[in-house]
């Protein structure tokens, strides 16, 4: 799965948790879940759980701590997928 594909999948995960349609339409790497998409912090947990399920990876606490932007989240997913592939 390449970066673009990860971001596309990530978008479908994020969408239900933001009511800011304009910000959702403008999602790019620099989009911040809380500042730009106005996602409730309790729903960040849902995004992490959805990412785990959808990509079949496990997000540890240190990785979760960084998952505030599309860029950081995409990097973590790519890294975890790579680790998986190497096994």
């Amino acid at each position: 799965m390449n970066r673009e594909e990860i971001i596309e999948t990530l978008k479908t995960i994020i969408e239900p948790y933001s009511e800011d349609a304009a910000a959702l339409a403008d999602i790019d790497e620099n989009t911040d879940f809380i500042k730009d998409l106005k996602i409730n912090s309790a729903n960040l947990v849902d995004i992490v759980l959805d990412v785990e399920e959808k990509f079949n990876i496990e997000i540890d606490n240190d990785s979760m701590a960084k998952m505030l932007t599309v860029k950081a989240t995409t990097e973590i997913i790519a890294q975890k997928l790579e680790e998986h592939a190497g096994q």
Binding site: V45, L49, N61
Partner: peptide
């Protein structure tokens, strides 16, 4: 709002936070 916005009974939810 919390009641409809967040399902904390979801599997692994509590364990993450």
């Amino acid at each position: 709002l919390a009641k409809i916005q967040s399902n904390w009974r979801r599997k692994n939810y509590l364990d993450k936070i």
